[in-house]
Every structure is written in C-alpha cells, then in structure tokens.
Amino acid sequence: IDLCKWIRLNDLQCVYPNVDIALRMYTCTPAANCSAKRSFSCLKRVKNYLRLTISEERLNYLAILCIEKTILQDLDINFVIDEFSRRKARRKVLK
C-alpha cells in the first residue's frame, strides 16, 4: 500500500503503469474475497433457517439485508417506516 501511495504521490504511474495496476489489484483482492466468502456464509445460514417456511423472493431479500448489514445499520428506521406506510397506504386522500 505504501509503494502504491508513493507511486501516486510522485506521479510515476505513467512511468510504471503495469506496476501501478498490479499494486492496485493486489490491494483490492483480499477485501473482495473476504466479502464474498462472508456473503455466501451468511446466505447459507439464512437458507438453512428459513428454507421451508419462506418464499424464494423473500429469502433473497433477507439474504441481501443480512449481507449488507453495515448499510442497513446506517439507515434511519423512522424514515423507512414512514416511506413504507406512504407507499402502502390504502386510504384515499380527501380534498
């Protein structure tokens, strides 16, 4: 990572383009593999727990929520509830 930063700071990516690309690929690879393994592990747990009691579509939605739990934790739950109730409202608006 330090070498990659040094190449970028000194504008040497034009001189060493293949080294720059290789270093960027190397720094990104571990995070991508780890994330994919966690995602499949999470999906396996969700599928085992809910396999017989839930539809395929809902199972997929729950798997996505479990995989992306960091994004889910940052959401404002009150906004989600208000938006859901606004979209699913069965009342007619009186003028």
Score class of each variant (00 low, 15 high):
2 D>C: 10
3 L>T: 10
5 K>V: 07
5 K>S: 09
6 W>P: 00
6 W>N: 08
6 W>L: 12
7 I>Q: 06
8 R>N: 09
8 R>T: 09
8 R>D: 10
8 R>W: 03
9 L>S: 10
9 L>T: 06
9 L>F: 07
10 N>I: 00
10 N>S: 03
11 D>R: 14
12 L>W: 11
13 Q>H: 05
15 V>F: 04
16 Y>V: 05
16 Y>G: 01
17 P>G: 02
17 P>C: 01
17 P>W: 02
18 N>I: 01
18 N>V: 02
20 D>H: 12
20 D>R: 02
22 A>Y: 07
23 L>D: 06
23 L>W: 06
23 L>N: 06
23 L>E: 05
24 R>A: 07
24 R>Q: 12
25 M>P: 00
25 M>E: 14
28 C>A: 15
31 A>T: 11
31 A>I: 07
32 A>N: 02
33 N>I: 14
34 C>E: 11
37 K>Q: 11
37 K>H: 07
38 R>A: 04
38 R>C: 08
40 F>D: 05
41 S>R: 03
42 C>P: 00
43 L>W: 04
43 L>R: 10
44 K>E: 08
45 R>M: 06
46 V>L: 08
47 K>M: 02
47 K>G: 00
47 K>F: 01
52 L>T: 05
53 T>V: 10
53 T>Q: 06
53 T>H: 05
53 T>K: 04
56 E>S: 10
56 E>T: 10
57 E>A: 12
59 L>R: 04
61 Y>K: 14
62 L>I: 13
62 L>N: 00
64 I>L: 13
64 I>N: 03
65 L>E: 12
65 L>Q: 09
66 C>V: 02
67 I>A: 14
67 I>M: 07
69 K>C: 15
70 T>N: 13
72 L>S: 08
74 D>W: 01
77 I>K: 12
77 I>L: 12
77 I>C: 07
77 I>A: 11
78 N>S: 13
79 F>R: 09
80 V>H: 01
81 I>N: 13
81 I>G: 06
81 I>C: 07
82 D>I: 01
83 E>L: 13
84 F>D: 04
85 S>E: 15
88 K>S: 11
88 K>D: 06
91 R>W: 09
92 K>S: 13
93 V>S: 08
